[in-house]
Design a binder for these strands. Sequence first.
DNA 1: ATATTATTTTAGATTTGTCTAAATTTTAAT
DNA 2: ATTAAAATTTAGACAAATCTAAAATAATAT
Lengths: 219, 219
Amino acid sequence: MNFSSSEENYIKAIYHLQQHDGMVTTNELAAELKTKAASVTDMLKKLKTKKLLHYEKYQGFKLSPEGKKLALAVVRKHRLWEYFLVHTLQFGWDEVHEIAEQLEHISSKTLVERLDLFLKHPKFDPHGDPIPDVNGKMEESKQINLTDLEINHIAEVSAVGSQSTELLELLRHRSISIGTKLEVRRKFSFDHSLEIKVKNVPPFTISQQLAHTLFVKPL
Amino acid sequence: MNFSSSEENYIKAIYHLQQHDGMVTTNELAAELKTKAASVTDMLKKLKTKKLLHYEKYQGFKLSPEGKKLALAVVRKHRLWEYFLVHTLQFGWDEVHEIAEQLEHISSKTLVERLDLFLKHPKFDPHGDPIPDVNGKMEESKQINLTDLEINHIAEVSAVGSQSTELLELLRHRSISIGTKLEVRRKFSFDHSLEIKVKNVPPFTISQQLAHTLFVKPL
DNA sequence: ATATTATTTTAGATTTGTCTAAATTTTAAT
DNA sequence: ATTAAAATTTAGACAAATCTAAAATAATAT
């Protein structure tokens, strides 16, 4: 079976959403894909006839096993290409998302496997997310959310929860990137903001919203 | 300006056809793209409004300077990706065409330039075709058509004029590939077939049609 | 329990790229 | 110079993916 880029994007977005929610709703998906609810409904019907998801109208939906398999294949391609862009072509880790969004839809089993071999079977992409293997299996990453990091424990930034330009701009301004070592000095319960310490920089405060999109590996 | 894959395919096909013909006709292009004349007419109108080609109805057409620029950019991407697939990912030179057809439509200037840098600015693709540089300039390849090779002069196969599966199958059967050294022993004027000699193999005869799709560099 | 609000779906329209069949224009042949 | 044939274009239809506006359903709030 072969699927359009659009279908693959829907399947991938559903996969990401159902990691948190279990069941996904029409509006959630519309927001994620920056499209309209009506368009989502249209596509859901098509994906249902292709047996990629379980869907009863007004009831929400989730991927079927075949849908999950497709999602993992797309995620695998996306993350392998990101790894390639950063490690082979010397892109910055914050420049590769949009290009990988295009590359992930190239359809050639052989290409993916040759790429994987050339890259020596990487297990994590430049954002710290695990890369599924040919069978969709991936290592559990030991990263936790920054909001869950214990006070005064040093950790290394390993992933960011979104690749929006706005977020990346803010991170750049704060000189935070993958690999940055930091610790949480205080947690303010009023607005859940955090005081952060990075070496060679005076302590600064970040919002709960920002902390929520950052993942770290405790050292 | 950004263009759809379909538009880029039309522009690229026109570019290739006008290398021979100067002016291109609707049916020629329809045949090249394996589509219908009516579809070609539709697309021509669109490409004309986008100023990519000169076109008066019933009169044939050719690329405008902007069209040529776009064509060369697509050709550059195609050939760079082919080079990458063969030299970096170890594909055979006869396996890469279809994948490169997809990759050539990835739109990211930076990506192309980083790829070019990583590959060390290759001048020719695995089929022996010259790779245009960023400005669309390319080296004149010294290859000539096999039908123009003088009798008893040794030459090396440097390019094939098509990537059709049928042709590649025939070449494989004849054990002819890029780099094969050969010479023409006789030319038969009746059907313009050629008697070919390759080392370690008894002489064999090839049709004019096949000879026409083979390009060689005299040694 | 019913009304209000929010969510989701349907109905109908739009864009892109394609097609078939019919009409038009050009070319070639007598 | 007509006519026949070939090439090209138009007209109208269709599939994919999207949208807006209206209708249907579900959730909620009194």
